Simulated assay, not measured.
Amino acid sequence: MLEVLNGFLLGYFLVLCTISALVPLLVKPIVACFSRPSQLERKLWDEIVMLKCQQKQISMKDEFAAYSKLQRRIIKLEAELNENSQDRLSKTLAIKGTIHMVLQVVIGLIIIISVIFFRREPIVALKGDLFPLSTLLKYPSDTPNAISTHMWVIISNVSIRALLKPMIS
């Protein structure tokens, strides 16, 4: 029912379409490299933990002034830590969006250039006659009942995205 005419292109476009569909998953580990907490954030966090330990050792009833002083210091440091974390998160979102866009554009350009370069190559040939669809499926190839590179990329892209949608979402 199906005869593979060009196995290399079949696999090549399947891999490209799969990578294109998996870009959201590929972006996460790349962004993780850029979004680590800074040295200042780690230092603030360590100081907050240390102050909270000191505060637990102080009796609130007996030494209210010292307890309150530590509490104000903790609140101030937590506010500073939150501000730094928000800055890092906004930068992370910008980096994530940029990397996602760049990867999609690069993969898209590779697919487009490849489709243009291999436009006359049929990928697979179907047994039997697909009369109403045969012209559309084979365009611009001359092989009867073939699926051209253009249509193969469209079919692969739609199929792979449909299959991987549960994993990506």
Rank of each mutant, 00 (worst) to 15 (best):
V27R: 01
A146C: 09
L130M: 12
T149E: 09
I19Y: 03
T143L: 12
E47W: 01
D62K: 11
Q57P: 01
D62S: 11
Q39H: 10
E41I: 07
A79L: 14
S134D: 14
L81W: 02
I111L: 08
F117A: 13
V105T: 13
T98L: 15
L109Q: 08
I113M: 10
S68Q: 12
E47V: 02
Q57L: 04
G128I: 04
I147C: 06
T98F: 11
I95K: 01
Q86S: 14
E78M: 00
R72F: 01
S68H: 14
I113F: 08
I113L: 13
L103P: 02
Q54C: 05
I99N: 02
P24T: 05
C17Y: 00
V105M: 15
N157V: 03
L9G: 07
D142M: 11
L22Q: 01
A32D: 09
Y139F: 15
I155N: 02
R120E: 14
F13R: 03
P37D: 06
L89Y: 09
M60Y: 12
F131H: 13
L109M: 13
I75G: 00
L103S: 04
V102G: 10
G128Q: 05
S159M: 05
A66W: 01
V49Q: 14
E63G: 03
K127Y: 06
D46E: 11
E3M: 04
F131E: 15
K91A: 09
K76C: 02
H100R: 08
K76P: 00
G108S: 08
L22P: 00
V15N: 05
S85G: 09
I116H: 02
S59M: 10
E47A: 10
E3T: 13
T18S: 10
T92C: 14
E78F: 00
E78N: 02
L10D: 12
I111A: 06
S159T: 06
Q104A: 12
E78L: 00
L164Y: 09
L103A: 07
M101V: 05
Q57G: 03
L77N: 03
C17L: 03
R161A: 06
R73E: 11
R36Y: 06
L44C: 05
E121N: 13
V31T: 13
M101W: 13
H100G: 04
V105F: 15
S90Q: 15
L16S: 06
A125P: 03
F131T: 14
M167A: 12
F13E: 01
C17D: 03
S68W: 06
I58K: 01
D62A: 11
V105C: 07
Q57K: 13
T18L: 05
K56R: 15
M1A: 14
S148W: 00
L16E: 02
L133I: 11
P122C: 11
H100Y: 11
K138F: 07
Q54H: 09
G108Q: 11
I74Q: 00
I123Y: 00
T149G: 06
L2S: 06
V4N: 06
W45R: 14
S156G: 07
A32W: 07
K91I: 13
V105Y: 08
F8K: 08
L163T: 08
V15L: 11
S38H: 09
E3P: 02
P144A: 13
K165C: 04
P29Q: 12
E47K: 14
K138S: 12
L5M: 11
L5N: 07
S141L: 04
E80N: 03
